[in-house]
């Protein structure tokens, strides 16, 4: 794994590499932006930061300030439990998946590290942009916040179910 201490000037993919239509299609597959009305898309796409990453490059690391989320437009990203070199891999994400979305709401530090597994193209959407959207076009802002809340509650529910499972498992083992 190459360390990302070297400053690399990654050439940005040209617009032709991935059209707005393709980006829109990838976004429409995500639960967060899936049903954003078409008339709002232009405004959201203007706020996206399209970034190109090399293999093994750190996107963000745990402990640094959380700023926002990324949607994978092309490539693969792994999420690690910490910023250490031998950190445990939590999940591997592919084109269309998104990560870091909790930072859109809270201002806490990142709880995990995101690392590319191969050359990857990402679209970043950040808290200042969401706040701007909430202020300028409250309807779209609320729309995204609502989806964020749904995702959060889904995960909370899943975590609760797992907790109950573990407790039952522990009880059985104790008996």
């Amino acid at each position: 794994m190459s360390k990302s201490t070297d400053i690399e000037w990654m050439p940005l993919r040209k617009k032709g590499d991935l059209s707005q239509k393709e980006i829109r299609e990838i976004f429409s597959r995500s639960t967060l932006f899936g049903d954003v009305p078409k008339r709002y898309w232009k405004m959201i796409s203007d706020m996206l930061h399209i970034r190109s990453y090399g293999e093994g490059e750190v996107i963000f690391e745990s402990g640094t300030p959380g700023l926002g989320m990324y949607v994978i437009l092309d490539g693969e990203v792994k999420i690690l439990a910490s910023a250490e070199e031998d950190a445990r891999e939590l999940v591997r994400l592919h084109t269309g998946d998104f990560f870091g979305e909790m930072s859109l709401i809270d201002e806490l530090t990142r709880s995990a590290t995101a690392l590319t597994c191969k050359p990857t193209l990402l679209a970043g959407f950040f808290r200042p942009q969401l706040q701007h959207l909430m202020h300028q076009r409250p309807r779209i802002g609320v729309f995204i916040m609502e989806r964020l809340a749904k995702i959060t509650f889904q995960r909370l529910r899943m975590a609760n179910e797992k907790l109950v499972e573990y407790r039952e498992q522990n009880q059985e083992e104790a008996e």
């Binding site: 970034r51 300030p65 970043g124």
Partner: peptide
């Protein structure tokens, strides 16, 4: 801005 400084630059 290089990737290493990207989030910092946005913030």
């Amino acid at each position: 801005v290089p990737n290493r400084f990207f989030e910092m630059a946005v913030s």
